[in-house]
């Protein structure tokens, strides 16, 4: 029974550490304003080479065709708007 308690305390301590570390990081993130201006945050993945608004991946050898098709699609909402 004693050793059982020892293990349980160990597990509980590990669990508490797990949780505490997550909370600490959350506090860090809050302090460093990671949760403000989220709309800009979502755009950090884009850069000059692969900017926002540009598709960047096609099947090899089919890019031109695909771009043409996508261009047609992208013009559709425009037509609706002018009507």
């Amino acid at each position: 029974m004693e050793s059982w308690d020892g293990y349980l305390i160990f597990i509980a301590a590990m669990g508490a550490m797990f949780f505490t570390s997550a909370v600490l990081v959350l506090v860090w993130a809050l302090k460093h304003k990671q949760f403000s201006k989220l709309n800009q945050g979502a755009r950090v993945i884009f850069d000059e080479e692969e900017p926002e608004g540009v598709h960047t991946d096609y099947f090899p050898g089919e890019a031109a065709k695909a771009r043409e098709m996508l261009a047609k699609e992208e013009h559709k909402p425009l037509k609706h708007a002018t009507r």
Partner: peptide, 19 residues
């Protein structure tokens, strides 16, 4: 393509958005 999409993006940004 880049130019065209950028134009489109600029149009889209005119809509009001929240934080």
């Amino acid at each position: 393509t880049l130019h065209r999409v950028h134009q489109q993006l600029q149009r889209e940004k005119e809509e009001p958005t929240e934080g």
